[in-house]
């Protein structure tokens, strides 16, 4: 109970402290800014078994483990029939390719 409370009340800020002290405003590295620009955009990830996952990018780490929200699964690139998975974590070692949807930028 107390653990879950703690996690839900102090989510992100607490975690960010580990990379930069909150009091001293650290300017983020350009790499991180670039990565951050993809947050909440739709990603299309192909996995090592050929399945395609499409969902909003929420989180990643050094090993490119990626968390997508509202994720849909397609059995192969030509398949149109989706299965809704919801929140998923894709281990970096199973990622074959990553595409970002920039349809908003080109509009």
């Amino acid at each position: 109970m107390s653990l879950t409370d703690e996690l839900s009340t102090s989510p992100v800020d607490g975690l960010n402290i580990s990379c930069g002290n909150e009091e001293v405003q650290v300017v983020e590295a350009p790499e991180k800014i670039k990565l951050r620009s993809w947050l909440n955009k739709n990603l299309r990830i192909e996995m090592s078994d050929g399945r395609i996952l499409v969902g909003a990018f929420l989180c990643t780490d050094r090993d490119s483990n990626i968390i997508l929200s509202s994720c849909a699964e397609f059995l192969n690139s030509s398949s149109e029939e989706a299965r809704i998975l919801g929140l998923v974590m894709i281990p970096g070692r199973h990622i074959v390719s990553i595409h970002v949807d920039n349809s908003y930028e080109t509009m």
Partner: peptide, 16 residues
């Protein structure tokens, strides 16, 4: 993406 991700520290998460 993968090369950018590699710049993150061990255990560091980039998240919304």
């Amino acid at each position: 993406f993968t090369s950018l991700a590699k710049t993150l520290n061990l255990g560091e998460l980039l998240l919304d």
